[in-house]
Amino acid sequence: MIREPTHSQTRPHRPGTYGRNMTTTPPPATPGTPVSDASAVSAVSARHLTKVYGSGDIAVTALDDVSIQFESGQFTAIMGPSGSGKSTLMHLLAGLDSATSGQVLLGRTDLTALGDNELTKLRRERIGFVFQSFNLLPMFTAYQNITLPSELAGTSPDQNWLDTLIDTFGMRDRLTHKPHQLSGGQQQRVAIARALSTRPDVIFADEPTGNLDSRSGAEVLSFLRRSVRELGQTIVMVTHDPTAAAYADQVVLLADGKIAGTIESPTPESVMSGLDALRTIDQTAVAG
């Protein structure tokens, strides 16, 4: 997908979108957005983000004017029913896909203004990824997989930091193993270590426990939480599992491409009831 550098300010309206003309002024605090100090820079933020797939009659609005901020050192879970736009939001935040309108800021960098090569460079230096299906290179050892991002960038990884990661994740005696010699949980730990290896500004995790049994899932989630609490990392995780979401510092609820609410210090129960509330709204809407 070729992405021409675009400036959201000048992006024209498209029929069927709810996008507005963007301004450079900070957006008003959207209800449900975690409250932040106006002068501090968020790790990642979205301003009036809209994404429309297709055009004309078959246009589907996946994200509808979403504005949100993710603070440094926070573990945020994005939740919502299927089709709520949570994956789309993450793709846009991570610079993997281009927005129809609106802005994504990583720190002070406007991702929507970057070309493919700049985005690629930004991804390998400032963003980490954890995938549902681990996505390790099968012919590389665990260690080689962990150092892959810095190798791609042509830089040498920070050895102390690597040691810290390896010890934190308990991977020391598995470093020379190939992925197929590791269990699912271990593979995902390697993937997390890989995501952390460059000390990115933010890590995006897409259903990181989706392919794991509950024990391994719990283990992986606690590693993610330790990464935030002990190593000071910022993590944004997309999940549909309330138990997983409960490991986060806060949960952002998404429905129909809009932010439907946030839950601070979530527990599985509070997340469940939050989701139930969404469903009730849905049903009411359908019933109405």
Binding site: A94, L96, D116, N117, T120, K121, R123, R124, E125, F129, F131, S133, N135, L137, L148, P149, L152, A153, R194
Partner: peptide
């Protein structure tokens, strides 16, 4: 395909 996509996500440029 997936592997290439993952590498691209991790920062492999098109030229690479």
């Amino acid at each position: 395909r997936r592997e290439s996509a993952m590498l691209r996500a991790l920062g492999l440029t098109k030229a690479q």
